[in-house]
C-alpha cells in the first residue's frame, strides 16, 4: 500500500496526475503529490469536543496524526467501515493528515482541457476548494484542492494562530 505516488513526473501535455477515490457513489480526485501513503483504517483515539468529522488521532510510525472522515465532512453515504475503507495519508505543508475514504480506485492523468470549471453549488463544499470537474470518457471526477481544504478554517485542523 506504500505510496501510490510512484511516478511523480509530469506526463507530457501539461497533464496532472490525480489520485481517484470514492466517497459513496461519487468519485473525487486529489493531486497525487500531496499523497504520502495509503493505509488501512485502524482504531483511532477520539478527541473530546472536536467536530464529528475529525475521527481522532492515530499513531503513524510514532507520529500522532489526525484522521478526518471526508464522508462525514461532505455528508456522503453512511460512513461505514468496510474492507475497502482506507486512509489516504496526506502531506500538506509540514503537516501530516489522514483522510478516510470509501476506497481508492486509480491514478489518472488529466490534461488542462479535460478539467472543466465547477459550477456554483451548495454550501457543503465551497467552490473555493474545487479545482474543477474532470471529465474522462463517461466518468466525472470532482477535483478537490485538498491542500486548501485541509488548511481551511472550517476543517478546524490547525490553530487559527498558525
Amino acid at each position: 500500500m506504500e505510496a501510490a505516488a510512484a511516478d511523480h513526473h509530469k506526463i507530457e501535455g501539461e497533464g496532472h496526475e490525480f489520485l481517484v477515490f470514492r466517497l459513496g457513489e461519487e468519485e473525487y480526485g486529489i493531486d497525487i503529490l500531496s499523497v504520502q501513503e495509503i493505509r488501512g483504517y485502524e482504531g483511532v483515539t477520539r478527541i473530546a469536543n472536536a467536530p464529528s468529522f475529525i475521527k481522532g488521532v492515530t499513531n503513524l510510525r510514532g507520529v500522532i496524526v489526525p484522521i478526518v472522515d471526508l464522508r462525514l465532512k461532505f455528508n456522503i453515504g453512511n460512513a461505514d467501515f468496510t474492507a475497502q475503507t482506507v486512509v489516504i495519508v496526506l502531506n500538506i505543508g509540514k503537516r501530516v493528515v489522514g483522510v478516510v475514504v470509501d476506497g481508492v480506485s486509480d491514478v489518472l492523468s488529466l490534461t488542462t482541457d479535460q478539467i472543466k470549471p465547477a459550477p456554483e453549488f451548495g454550501a457543503t463544499l465551497s467552490t473555493q476548494y474545487l479545482r474543477g470537474l474532470g471529465s474522462l470518457e463517461d466518468r466525472m471526477l470532482i477535483l478537490v484542492d485538498i491542500e486548501g481544504l485541509m488548511t481551511s478554517e472550517e476543517m478546524a485542523l490547525i490553530d487559527e494562530a498558525t
Binding site: 483515539t45 488521532v57 485542523l157
Partner: peptide, 21 residues
C-alpha cells in the same frame, strides 16, 4: 500540535504499548 492543534484539557499525546494513542 505537530499535525493537529491544541486541544483544551489535553496537554499532549503518547503511544501506548499496544501502538494506540
Amino acid at each position: 500540535e505537530t499535525n493537529y492543534k491544541r486541544v483544551p484539557g489535553i496537554s499532549a499525546a503518547t503511544i501506548m504499548g499496544d501502538g494506540s494513542v
